[in-house]
Amino acid sequence: MSKKKKLILTIVSILVVLLGAAGVYGFNIYQSLKETTETMHTPIERVQPEKRPEKVTLEKKDPFSVLLMGVDKRENDSGRSDTMVVLTVNPNTNSVKMLSIPRDTRVEIIGRDTEDKINHAYAFGGVAMSMATIENFLDIPIDYYIEINMEGFKDIVDAVGGVEVNNAFAFNYEGYTFEEGTLQLSGEEALAYSRMRYEDPNGDFGRQQRQRQIISAIIKKGASLSSLWNYSNIFDALGANVKTNLTFEEMVDIQRNYGSAAKNIEQYQIAGNGQMINSIYYYMVSDEERARLQDLLRQHLELD
């Protein structure tokens, strides 16, 4: 065999070994991801909502909705869903609509026969009551939920090696100083950064924006090639701090059939005004604003 052929054979052999190793590594990642999603999977018992007489079929590319909840659970506290974002996903228009709901919004709490702050629904009845209350408020079905333990933010941030954010203004909170401009945050710093509200001129809206910053930074960092070498810690952090009624198979269907919709995300906020009722602050939403949002989301879900 000539030297040239020997060299080519050697290079091919090395490539085969490397590809085989990559295949095994990729298989390990796939298995770990599947195990993590099974840990995250938390079905809830709820009556099939009349807003959605028939369950959505992701294989058929039906438009669907997801409720994202950032739940702040501290010691000796059942927790409240301080961050609530409703996503409607339509593969036919290749678009996602993202609606942030202020935590102080005064609504009817379904199952309690009372009006209260929308984030109290979680404290009263967990995920099921939160979903039912938001369904009633927006007049749309909520097909899935994803609950993130805000206390676990720091574990997820540390697992991806910290995150980078662009801070709009300088402030101090929980012993940390956050200067204006680009910041590199550890897990503890990111948790404090996402919690501050009262010093923000935009109040809860400002806090929601910072929380979205952290989530986006986590996704960006977690999707980078460098994070693949630390996938075990990342999956452990997700499994310990995220719950959802989505199955692994449904997540695969969403990635396969709805991936292009994520490139076109439109963000919306609810217009309203603050009002004191019995010495308690509420965010009041007019019937006209509520009807506008209902029409917007129902059309996007192709319900009308």
Score class of each variant (00 low, 15 high):
residue 58 L to I: 02
residue 50 E to L: 10
residue 181 G to Q: 07
residue 197 R to P: 06
residue 75 E to F: 14
residue 159 A to Y: 04
residue 76 N to D: 15
residue 300 H to D: 12
residue 268 Y to S: 01
residue 200 D to V: 04
residue 166 N to P: 08
residue 95 S to M: 13
residue 215 I to E: 07
residue 161 G to K: 06
residue 39 T to P: 15
residue 69 M to V: 02
residue 293 L to A: 03
residue 42 T to E: 09
residue 52 R to V: 03
residue 169 F to P: 06
residue 245 N to E: 07
residue 92 N to E: 14
residue 51 K to S: 15
residue 63 P to W: 08
residue 2 S to V: 07
residue 259 G to V: 08
residue 27 F to N: 10
residue 47 V to Q: 15
residue 142 I to L: 11
residue 184 Q to A: 12
residue 258 Y to K: 04
residue 107 V to S: 05
residue 269 Q to P: 03
residue 3 K to N: 12
residue 291 A to D: 13
residue 210 R to T: 07
residue 55 K to Y: 09
residue 154 K to H: 07
residue 39 T to C: 13
residue 109 I to C: 03
residue 94 N to K: 15
residue 220 K to C: 11
residue 107 V to A: 05
residue 29 I to A: 02
residue 69 M to G: 03
residue 1 M to Q: 12
residue 70 G to W: 01
residue 230 N to C: 02
residue 166 N to W: 06
residue 42 T to G: 08
residue 140 I to S: 07
residue 271 A to N: 10
residue 284 M to I: 13
residue 80 R to G: 10
residue 27 F to I: 06
residue 104 D to L: 00
residue 230 N to F: 01
residue 240 A to Y: 06
residue 29 I to D: 05
residue 91 P to N: 10
residue 162 G to E: 07
residue 234 I to D: 00
residue 46 R to T: 14
residue 268 Y to Q: 03
residue 36 T to K: 02
residue 4 K to F: 10
residue 299 Q to P: 02
residue 157 V to P: 08
residue 140 I to T: 07
residue 232 S to P: 15
residue 45 E to S: 14
residue 171 F to M: 01
residue 148 I to V: 13
residue 65 S to W: 05
residue 54 E to F: 08
residue 271 A to H: 13
residue 14 I to Q: 00
residue 180 E to P: 08
residue 30 Y to E: 13
residue 53 P to L: 02
residue 273 N to Y: 09
residue 5 K to P: 11
residue 136 N to C: 02
residue 227 S to V: 00
residue 6 K to A: 15
residue 213 Q to W: 03
residue 113 D to S: 11
residue 81 S to L: 08
residue 80 R to T: 12
residue 11 I to A: 11
residue 275 Q to E: 09
residue 302 E to A: 13
residue 288 E to T: 14
residue 93 T to C: 05
residue 269 Q to L: 02
residue 155 D to I: 00
residue 83 T to N: 11
residue 20 G to A: 05
residue 39 T to K: 09
residue 210 R to F: 05
residue 30 Y to T: 05
residue 55 K to M: 13
residue 62 D to R: 06
residue 72 D to C: 03
residue 96 V to R: 01
residue 293 L to S: 01
residue 10 T to N: 14
residue 70 G to P: 00
residue 6 K to H: 09
residue 240 A to E: 13
residue 193 Y to K: 00
residue 22 A to P: 10
residue 97 K to G: 15
residue 31 Q to I: 10
residue 55 K to D: 12
residue 241 N to T: 09
residue 216 S to I: 01
residue 46 R to G: 11
residue 203 G to A: 12
residue 57 T to K: 14
residue 93 T to P: 05
residue 269 Q to D: 15
residue 84 M to G: 04
residue 93 T to Y: 10
residue 109 I to P: 00
residue 278 N to W: 03
residue 83 T to Y: 08
residue 215 I to D: 06
residue 82 D to I: 04
residue 114 T to Y: 15
residue 202 N to P: 15
residue 99 L to P: 01
residue 287 D to P: 11
residue 289 E to T: 10
residue 8 I to A: 06
